[in-house]
Every structure is written in C-alpha cells, then in structure tokens.
C-alpha cells in the first residue's frame, strides 16, 4: 500500500478517567467517522476554545493520551500500540506547558546535548561545544544565551524555557507538533520564534500541526497553499459538523 499521508488518525476517541465519576470524553472523532489525514510537508492550524480537545488530539498522535478506540498511522505504519518514546523518533513535540520540554536542574548546554541524535548509552564524554546548528538555533530564537550555557534551566523564565524546548524538538525530516508554543513569549520574540519554526519546518519538509488561539495568525497562515485551518468544538471538528448538518438539511454543498 502506498502511503501518501504522514499522519493518519482514524476514528480517534480519547476518554480520560474512564469508568470513574470524572470521566471526560476529550476527543470524539469516531462520532463523525472522521479520518484526520495529513500530507507530507503540510501545515495544519488547529484553533478552538479552551477544552475543545486540541491538545488531546496532538497528544493522541504522539502517544501521550488514553486512546479508547481508533488508530494512528505514521508514515503508513500502525503505531497505535507504540509507547510515546518510540513514536518520538518521528515526532518533535513542543508542549503547551513550557516546563515539560526541558530538564530544569540541568544546564542549557546539557539540555542541548540530550537532543543530539546519538545513542544514549555511549560511555564516552559528551562534547563541551555545541554544534553549529544548535548555536544557530539559539541565535535565531533571539535569546541571549550564548554566554548562559552554564545556567540551569530553572533559572530561566518560562518563555525562555519554551523557546529552548522548541530548539530541542526541531529535528530533521520529522513531524512537528506545536501546542501553543509561543503562548509564553512576548510579541517581538513570538514573531521571531514563529518565523524561525516555520522556516525551519519548511527547510526540512516537516509536517506541522500547530495549535494557536491567535485567529489573525491562523487566517494569515491559512492563505498559503497547502495549509489548512481547522476549528475544534467539544472534541470534534467544526467543519465536519457543519457539513453533516447541511447533509441532514438536504442541501449538501462543499464550497
């Protein structure tokens, strides 16, 4: 089977705290019999209100949510049963929570060393210099970090940590899941980081799913060819629901 899609998420349903009084159906694409398919190099922009299931969808793709039914394919391979660390070889993930993507008690230098693609079990000293690409990315995100390599991450601000988390997540030829990755940044930095992330993604032909509450930005990005803006409501896609309603009205149009 030829697999044109980088990500195929079929009929995903995610239920938190199943079987308890706190049960929440956070994602219910099963109801609409919906396949969430993304092409190589495509950028999907997800918007929607708080608690509408955006984070849950990308977490389910990355293997970090309790998927009840449905399946996830990456590069045509069924990864539904894979733990998160196995999928992480294809996926770079910047979380909404800036604290998740970095090690707080390790220095900036050590955090960058971890993200190098080398086996973890090497019993040889890690280098005391950063690669050119890493130095480049530090400069591009506009952080004055060149002199701060020995700073522990918990001494940086939340926004600085989130930018570093982005640098660590950018990997060649991968899928990029960006969950409100600029939420902690000031306007100016936000622009720089956003531009950097998107240009980097384009340069390595990465497939991007980006979550944002910035509707102007979403509209702007949506104008570019290949990009798609989707809105979520209550764990489903608004677009699909609209189409369904129109079908039941007997006036189905796809415009």
């Amino acid at each position: 089977m030829s697999a044109p899609y980088v990500i195929e998420a079929r009929n995903l349903k995610v239920v938190y705290n199943e079987g308890t009084p706190n049960e929440v159906v956070a994602l219910d694409l099963d109801r609409d019999n919906f396949c969430f398919n993304v092409l190589q190099g495509q950028t999907i922009i997800l918007t929607g209100g708080n608690g509408s299931g955006k984070s849950t969808l990308v977490k389910a793709i990355a293997g970090m949510a309790p998927v009840k039914s449905g399946s996830v394919f990456i590069h045509g391979k069924d990864v539904t049963g894979w733990p998160a660390y196995r999928r992480a070889k294809h996926i770079g993930f910047v979380h909404q929570d800036p604290m998740l993507g970095t090690c707080p008690n390790l220095t900036v230098h050590e955090n960058f060393q971890i993200s190098l693609e080398k086996p973890w079990w090497l019993p040889t000293p890690y280098p005391l210099t950063l690669t050119k690409g890493q130095l480049d990315s530090i400069e591009k995100i506009g952080l004055p970090l060149a002199e701060k390599k020995t700073t522990q991450l918990n001494m940086l601000s939340g926004g600085q940590r989130q930018s570093i988390a982005l640098c660590l997540a950018l990997r060649k030829g991968s899928i990029l899941l960006l969950d409100e990755f600029t939420s902690a940044l000031d306007e100016q930095t936000k622009k720089a980081v956003l531009l950097y992330a998107l240009s980097e993604a384009k340069a390595m032909k990465a497939t991007v799913i980006m979550i944002t509450h910035d509707l102007t930005l979403a509209r702007e990005l949506g104008k570019e060819s290949g990009n798609v803006v989707l809105t979520m409501v209550g764990g489903r896609f608004q677009q699909v629901m609209a189409i369904k309603r129109e079908i039941s009205d007997g006036i189905f149009r796809l415009y």
């Binding site: 993930f93 993507g101 090690c103």
Partner: peptide, 18 residues
C-alpha cells in the same frame, strides 16, 4: 552521555522520553 541521560531521567523523565 550515559551519565548525562541518567541525570536527565532523574530530572525530567518525560523530556527524555520525548
């Protein structure tokens, strides 16, 4: 590198998994 990952796992296991 092994020692670095041991320390990182103790610090933020989630990050090492990602």
């Amino acid at each position: 590198r092994l020692g670095l990952f041991i320390r990182a796992t103790g610090d933020n296991e989630f990050m090492v998994q990602t």
